[in-house]
């Protein structure tokens, strides 16, 4: 039986027919509505490639049963840039070479956006590393990722101050 799932995704509210109640939020995003920016690396909450924000909090969307998020507000990597203007975190990832193959990158970036918003890590590299450690990068772009998060934090602090 098809059920209707109401989600606000990247600011747009949508009624999504869910043909299979087993579908994870990740598979709904990727296979049902074509938002394939969010990646699947393990499908069991171990790699972070599928990280999205739900009501501002980062979660592993592969572990989220889609139907249990009815009414939620979801931000995916596709929702960060405003037109051609990259989000500061996205820009910092390019600048600091915070990726190689790019497969973990959407998850890293969503995690970084949330980490900065959480305000726990600030400009302490050790805490950034810790806070980003739920997102695996097999290319091991970790030095760049840490640098990118710090750069973006600084840029966003400046924006806030301005």
């Amino acid at each position: 039986m098809t059920q209707i799932l109401k989600l606000t995704i990247n600011g747009t509210s949508q009624d999504i027919p869910i043909d299979d109640p087993r579908a994870t939020l990740l598979d709904v995003l990727r296979e049902r509505i074509g938002l394939t920016g969010t990646k699947k690396g393990c499908d069991r909450g171990q790699c972070g490639a599928c990280t999205v924000l739900i009501d501002g909090r980062r979660i592993n969307s592969c572990l989220a049963l889609a139907l249990s998020y009815d009414g939620a507000e979801i931000t995916t990597v596709e929702g960060l840039a405003q037109g051609d203007l990259l989000h500061p975190v996205q820009a910092a990832f390019i600048e600091a070479d915070g990726f190689q193959c790019g497969y973990c990158t959407p998850g890293q970036i969503m995690s970084a956006v949330a980490l900065i918003a959480e305000g726990e890590a600030g400009l302490d590299p050790e805490r950034v590393r810790e806070g980003m450690s739920g997102n695996l990068c097999r290319c091991a772009a970790y030095a760049g990722i840490t640098e990118a998060v710090l750069k973006a934090t600084r840029a966003m602090n400046r924006e806030d101050a301005a």
């Binding site: 990727r30 296979e31 074509g34 938002l35 394939t36 920016g37 969010t38 990646k39 699947k40 995916t76 990597v77 596709e78 960060l80 840039a81 990259l86 996205q90 820009a91 990832f93 390019i94 990726f99 790019g102 497969y103 990158t105 959407p106 970036i109």
Partner: peptide, 16 residues
């Protein structure tokens, strides 16, 4: 870079 940070880089399983 831009394709990769915006989720627009298409990997094999992204094709539908």
């Amino acid at each position: 870079g831009v394709l990769k940070v915006t989720g627009r880089a298409t990997y094999a399983a992204d094709n539908r």
